[in-house]
Design a binder for these strands. Sequence first.
DNA 1: CGATATTCGGTATGTTGCATAACAATTATC
DNA 2: GATAATTGTTATGCAACATACCGAATATCG
Lengths: 173, 173
Amino acid sequence: MTVSKTAAGDAPKPSRPARKEPAEVSAENVPLQLGELSELLGYSLKRAQLKIFEDFLRCVAPLQLTPAQFSVLLLLDRNPGRNQTEIASTLGILRPNFVAMLDGLESRELCIRIRSTNDRRSHILMLTDKGRAVLARAKKLVATKHEARLNELLGPSKRAALLEMLGKIAREL
Amino acid sequence: MTVSKTAAGDAPKPSRPARKEPAEVSAENVPLQLGELSELLGYSLKRAQLKIFEDFLRCVAPLQLTPAQFSVLLLLDRNPGRNQTEIASTLGILRPNFVAMLDGLESRELCIRIRSTNDRRSHILMLTDKGRAVLARAKKLVATKHEARLNELLGPSKRAALLEMLGKIAREL
DNA sequence: CGATATTCGGTATGTTGCATAACAATTATC
DNA sequence: GATAATTGTTATGCAACATACCGAATATCG
């Protein structure tokens, strides 16, 4: 059987003149053939990435954090005393685009910019207490909801294998 | 050992007045710690996806095709006689955004819109001969350059496993 | 030392991808 | 035949991403 949606109420098609196409019965619900598309790594990669970001946003919604913001908080926590250029470049964010992002985080009092005394051009970035608290809660949500779901979907060993391959691609391609 | 980059030429730091920080020797080239970031699937996924799209664009540059355009051509080839809504929705493209995309492809004479006779609202999409030729050349470039590189990086079996996991995430998450 | 080049954060700006509302034409529904 | 739904389209807004440029501060080198 092909038709599964459109539910009950099937038109029984008792006696029809069939003006043009007899296959018109189920409204041509034939799904498209992906063809070579399902063999394209980039295609699956993009679609999977969108799904995962979507799920991330859902799981961490109570804290109003995007994946990018979460990654910044994580990096600030692990690397205190760094400036904007260092944080941005490690995340692949261009400095100009990082400004507005920091403005957002700083206006929510999750982090602060401190003018460095060694080099008065640069701003040292620091998590605030509130930032650390939000990060802790976010970590918990990500672990128990987001990553847990992926673990359940793939299994721990496959998930690890996936992570390793993605890292390899990101690093060595 | 932690430090592995920065290679040879280690400054032995013999006798330095060390005006401020003795660690200033190698210009503080200490790379940032990714921390939990490297365990975040979404993070690696995004970065890998960017790299792969980048490589795709490079490999198929002579034909001036983006991944999205390539996927449209592939889909049109496999599914002749479909309209814009069907093609767009299978690719996860919203109809309004699909218009400009088709304008681009049609202006390059890679495909054409044909007013359907059954339903004069919809446009049937068809590849032109030029479109089929470009698609054939693109397929070859993708196979011999892009996917070949990934095969060489991951190995065929791991590549297949990766593709399967990504598909599962895209479908079931 | 001082002139030049470089780096830092920041602004301005443009492009692209992605999402929603609305519309005319056409078709389906009742 | 009146109403609702669908198709392609336009307009529009937002977010991500990229480049050029600026002033301030620092580094480099003659």
